[in-house]
Design a protein around this nucleic acid. Structure first.
Lengths: 242, 242
DNA sequence: GTAAAGATTGAACGCCGCGTAGTTTCAACA
DNA sequence: TGTTGAAACTACGCGGCGTTCAATCTTTAC
C-alpha cells in the first residue's frame, strides 16, 4: 500500500496534509481573533486570549505568527479588504448608467459594514491596538488605494461636477501610487477629481465614524436616516440625478 | 501681629492655604496628564506615568482622584470644552451678518484644534483609554450639547436651505435635552434643522478624523486645502454665499 | 520501524497596570 | 510648642501582557 506514494519531485508544490492543517489553524487563529475583536474591541486581541479560546498555549501561536503585531496587521488587512469588497460589490449591483445609485450603494455598504463590524471599523480607521505600530507596506495600504480608486471612479462618472472647482491641483499633490492608478484607469481625468474623491470619502466617513463611536446615538435615534439624506445630498452635489 | 487673623467664622468659605495647594496639585496632575496624552496618546495616561513625571508615587494620586476613570473623565471634559470654546470664539469673531464666514470659521477652528491636539481629539471622539467606561452624565455630554447647539445656530442662520428637505422630522427623533435646548434658543425652527446640523457635524468631522488618524496624509500632502474646499462647498450647499 | 521534522506544551522572565494598606513626614494651627 | 491631620512614601497583592526556551508529543518521511 505504499507504491502510490506521490513523487517527491515537487516538494513545495504538493499541499502536504501538514501544510493544510497549518493553513487551517492559521485561519482559525484569525477567526478567533476577529470574534474577540467583535466582542471586546481591539484591546481584547491578545495572544493569551486567543490561545485560551482555542485551548492552546500562547507560545504555540508563535509557530504561526512571528509576533503579535504581525497578527494584527493580518487582521487589519483582512478587515479592510472585506470592507472594500463589500463596497465594490454593492456598487456593481447597479449598472454603469445609474451613477447616482452606484454612489449611494457604495456609501450605504460602507456604513452597513461599519455598523455590522464596529470593532473592525475601529481597527481599520481608529486607534489601533495598544502598542501596535503600523508597518510600512502591506495589504492595508493596498486596500486603501482600492477604496480611493473606487471612489475616484464614482466621481469620474459624474465629472465634471456642477460647482466647477476653481482650485488647481497637480498630480504630485497626491500619493504617487494612487495618482498612477487613477491616471491609468481613468485617462483624461484631471487631478482635481482625486481631490474631490477624497472629499467624498471624508463625507461618507464622518457620520459613520460619529455613529460607530457612539456620538450620534445620544443625539438622534435614527442615524441611518441622517446618513441616507447625506448620501442623497452628496449625489445631488455631484450633479447626479436622484 | 496675630490680631489680624481672619475670623474663623466661615470655615468652609475661606480658601485655606491647604486647599489652595490641593487645587494647584490637582491642576498639575491634569496638566501632566495632558502632556502625556499629547506625547504618547490616550494609552499613555496612567497613574503611574503621571506620578513618575511628577516625582510622586501612584498611590498619592488617589488623594486627588478617587480612581483613574475619574481623571480620564475630567480630562475628556476639559478637552471637549476647550474645543467647543475655540469653535465658538472663532465663530463669534465674525458678525451675525456673515453666516457663511461664521460657519467656515467654526469648521476651520474645529480642524485646527484637532490638528493641534490630535491626542485630545482621539480622547474625545475616538477610542477612549483601555478599560475606561464613559460615565452617564458630566461635563462631556454638556460640551457635546453645546457643540450641537452651536451648529444648529449656524444652520438656523441659513434656514431654510435651498434643497428643501422633504423628510419630516419630529422633535422626539432627537435627544430630549438637545431638542429642548434648540427649541428654547431658536423658537420656530423645525426639527429638520437639527437633523441638518448633525449632518453638518458629520461633514466637518469626516475629513478631520481621517486626517488625525493618518489616513489622509498618505494620500495627499495638503489636507487643509481639501478641508477648505469642503467647507466652501458646505456653505454653498446651505445656500450661504461665499 | 525508526529517525527527522514539526507542533505543542509548560514554565519562566520581565514588564506594566490598578488599587490598598500601614507608616512616616511636615506644615498649619492653637 | 505641642497637636493634628493631610499628603506622601514604601510595600504589597493581583492580574494581564508578549515573548522565549528546553522538553515533549505527534506526524511525516525514509
Amino acid at each position: 500500500m505504499t507504491d502510490t506514494t506521490p513523487p517527491a519531485t515537487a516538494p513545495t508544490a504538493a499541499p502536504t496534509r501538514r501544510q493544510q492543517l497549518r493553513l487551517d489553524t492559521t485561519a482559525e487563529i484569525k477567526r478567533v481573533a476577529l470574534a474577540l475583536l467583535a466582542e471586546g474591541g481591539p484591546d481584547a486581541i491578545s495572544l493569551r486570549a486567543i490561545a485560551r479560546e482555542m485551548r492552546m498555549t500562547a507560545g504555540a501561536l508563535y509557530s504561526y505568527y512571528a509576533t503579535r503585531d504581525d497578527l494584527i496587521t493580518a487582521l487589519t488587512s483582512d478587515m479592510y479588504t472585506a470592507l472594500v469588497d463589500r463596497a465594490e460589490a454593492a456598487r456593481d449591483a447597479h449598472p454603469t448608467e445609474a451613477p447616482a445609485a452606484r454612489l449611494r450603494a457604495w456609501g450605504e455598504a460602507f456604513r452597513a459594514w461599519a455598523v455590522d463590524h464596529p470593532a473592525g471599523f475601529r481597527l481599520v480607521y481608529g486607534d489601533p491596538v495598544r502598542g501596535y505600530r503600523v508597518p510600512e507596506g502591506g495589504a492595508a495600504p493596498e486596500a486603501a488605494s482600492r477604496a480611493c480608486a473606487g471612489l475616484t471612479g464614482l466621481v469620474a462618472a459624474a465629472w465634471p461636477p456642477p460647482g466647477a472647482d476653481a482650485d488647481e491641483y497637480a498630480w504630485d499633490d497626491f500619493d504617487p501610487g494612487l495618482a498612477n492608478l487613477v491616471q491609468e484607469k481613468f485617462p483624461g481625468l484631471p487631478p482635481a477629481a482625486v481631490a474631490l474623491a477624497l472629499r467624498v470619502w471624508g463625507r461618507m466617513h464622518g457620520l459613520v465614524a460619529l455613529e460607530v463611536y457612539g456620538h450620534l446615538r445620544s443625539q438622534t435615534r435614527d442615524p441611518a436616516r441622517l446618513y441616507r439624506a447625506e448620501l442623497r445630498d452628496l449625489a445631488r452635489s455631484l450633479g447626479l440625478g436622484d
